[in-house]
Computed example of a mutant assay.
Amino acid sequence: MQDNGANTVPYSYTLKVAEKDIDELLHVNNVVYLQWVNDISDRHWNKLSSKSLNEKYFWVVLRHELDYLSQAVLHDELTLVTWVGHSRGAKSVRHVEIYKGETLCLKAASTWCLIDAQTLKPTRIKDDILDTLKPGQKS
């Protein structure tokens, strides 16, 4: 993993590329990579957060930036890694990297917006969220 200036301890898991992930060019489809970016983001947030936070807030994505650096093919084992970078106002940047062994296949940065579950409007990221995102918290 590259130096990231992370606010959170990285979270990771591995998966094996399945037939449903492959496109007509016989490698992982770009849309599948985007789905994996969303999946690991959700899994990490759900690991860090609590029921009370999830009742008060939810996240929506504003922007995805994906750099496709190397291909993955059927049966490859991939490691997905994520961490939260800078958070300011109502926005937070989440980073995701996907590796095949030591080879970086995808690098992504997604900007997420925190939404108040009652008003359905963007809300500032307050201490309860910032404390949840601090290094060493429930990694």
Rank of each mutant, 00 (worst) to 15 (best):
V93Y: 01
S92M: 14
G85M: 10
W83E: 14
L69C: 03
W83M: 06
I98M: 11
L78P: 03
T82Q: 09
R94S: 07
H75M: 10
A72Q: 04
W83C: 15
I98G: 05
Q71K: 08
V73A: 08
S92F: 01
T82P: 09
T79E: 13
L66V: 13
H75R: 14
H86G: 07
Q71E: 15
D76V: 03
L66S: 10
G89F: 06
E97P: 02
V96Q: 10
S92N: 06
Q71I: 12
K91R: 14
G85Y: 10
L78N: 01
V73C: 09
T82K: 09
H95L: 01
K91Q: 13
D67V: 00
R94T: 06
H75L: 12
R94Y: 08
V96T: 15
A90L: 04
H75G: 01
V96I: 15
K91D: 05
L74G: 06
S87I: 11
A72T: 04
L78G: 02
A72V: 04
T79K: 14
S87H: 12
V73I: 11
V81E: 14
V93C: 02
L78A: 01
Y68C: 02
V96C: 15
D67K: 14
H75T: 12
L66N: 15
W83L: 11
S87K: 05
G89K: 11
T79Q: 11
L80K: 01
L66Q: 02
E97Y: 03
E77S: 07
D76N: 08
K91S: 13
S70Q: 09
H86K: 15
L80P: 04
S70W: 06
L66D: 10
V96K: 11
A90P: 14
H86I: 07
L78W: 02
A90F: 04
V84A: 13
T79N: 01
A72F: 04
A72P: 05
S92H: 01
L69E: 05
V81W: 09
G85P: 06
L80H: 03
E97D: 12
Q71S: 12
L74V: 04
V96S: 09
H95K: 12
H95N: 13
E77M: 07
V81M: 12
K91E: 10
L80C: 13
W83D: 15
A72R: 02
V84F: 14
S92D: 01
R88N: 10
L74D: 09
E77K: 12
K91T: 13
L66T: 07
E97V: 00
V93M: 03
S92Q: 06
D76R: 01
V84R: 05
V84Y: 13
E77L: 07
R94W: 08
E97R: 04
L69H: 02
S70G: 08
R94K: 11
S70T: 01
D76S: 02
R88F: 04
H75E: 15
L74F: 15
I98K: 04
H95D: 05
E97I: 00
L74K: 11
H95Y: 13
H95A: 11
S70M: 03
D67I: 00
L74P: 07
I98A: 06
V84K: 03
L66C: 14
A72G: 12
E77W: 01
V73K: 15
W83N: 15
V73N: 08
V73F: 06
L80S: 06
V81T: 10
L66P: 00
G89H: 11
V96R: 10
D67G: 03
H75K: 15
V73Y: 05
H86M: 08
L80R: 02
K91V: 04
R94E: 08
L78R: 02
H75W: 11
